[in-house]
């Protein structure tokens, strides 16, 4: 059964004063959070006692101001950051969309990039071959698929990235807010695919500043502030959706 359970998760890391010949500065690490300590003993408390549980079919929206810990939490769920305390229990195959361009080569064609992205995702050659035409069709890139990636617009790149990431039906999909960057028709199409994904008993965790995106995609909202959970609430179902859901 697909599930995510975080219990009292904290992420604290030392703010490394890198050995350097230049004058010391206050180097900040890749996460937000609170800086504690002084001098050479500074630490960043990026997440503090975060806990929640998600079951199959749930879609969680992460909201909060910049530096609240949304992206950090996604990266803890994905396994990029190892939590300093607490426990993370994840059942299910996780895929993530943090950066559209990761794994995409500017000079390579879209088709070659699908192969490279598939390899990075750990797919076999047979899986890549099997999914190739579906990915191309979903991305609607048409003849552009055989042109270099550098010829693509931001929206086309987003379509290709999303198509690849969701092609193998990840059981848990983690997304940063870039999905809001695509055009309206792509967002609608992406939302339909996410709905399908959730209906197949998957879990989606989406970090975004867009309230409308959270409302249209998510069933729960987790508000983070300074690395702590401020609230965890259900997202009210829109009247139209409620009507269509009722028999």
């Amino acid at each position: 059964m697909v599930s995510i359970k975080l219990d009292n998760v904290s992420l604290i890391y030392k703010l490394h004063e890198k050995l350097t010949l230049s004058a010391p500065d206050r180097r900040l690490g890749p996460t937000g959070g609170k800086i504690e300590g002084a001098g050479r003993k500074q630490f960043v408390q990026a997440l503090d006692s975060v806990g929640f549980e998600l079951k199959a079919g749930e879609r969680l929206g992460l909201v909060g101001p910049n530096g609240a810990g949304k992206t950090t939490l996604l990266k803890v769920l994905y396994g990029i950051y190892e939590p300093s305390g607490g426990s993370v229990a994840i059942e299910g195959k996780v895929d993530a969309l943090f950066n559209i361009n990761i794994g995409f080569r500017r000079e390579a064609t879209g088709r070659r990039n699908i192969v490279l992205r598939g390899l990075i995702n750990g797919w076999s050659e047979a899986e890549i071959e099997e999914k190739m035409e579906d990915i191309i069709a979903f991305s609607e890139l048409g003849d552009f698929i055989d042109l270099p990636f550098k010829a693509y617009s931001q929206g086309m790149a987003a379509r290709l990235a999303f198509s690849v990431a969701t092609a193998l039906d990840p059981e848990i999909l983690l997304m940063d807010e870039w999905i809001g960057a695509g055009d309206a028709s792509f967002q609608e199409k992406a939302k339909r695919r996410m709905d399908e994904l959730a209906e197949k008993a998957g879990i989606i965790v989406l970090a975004s500043h867009s309230e409308s995106l959270i409302q249209s995609v998510c069933t729960k909202r987790l508000t983070l502030k300074g690395g702590r959970v401020e609230s965890l609430t259900a997202v009210p179902v829109k009247p139209a959706e409620a009507a269509s859901a009722s028999p």
Partner: peptide, 9 residues
């Protein structure tokens, strides 16, 4: 950097 911060390779 982008790979290390965006993937679990």
């Amino acid at each position: 950097e982008s790979f290390i911060e965006g993937t679990t390779l």
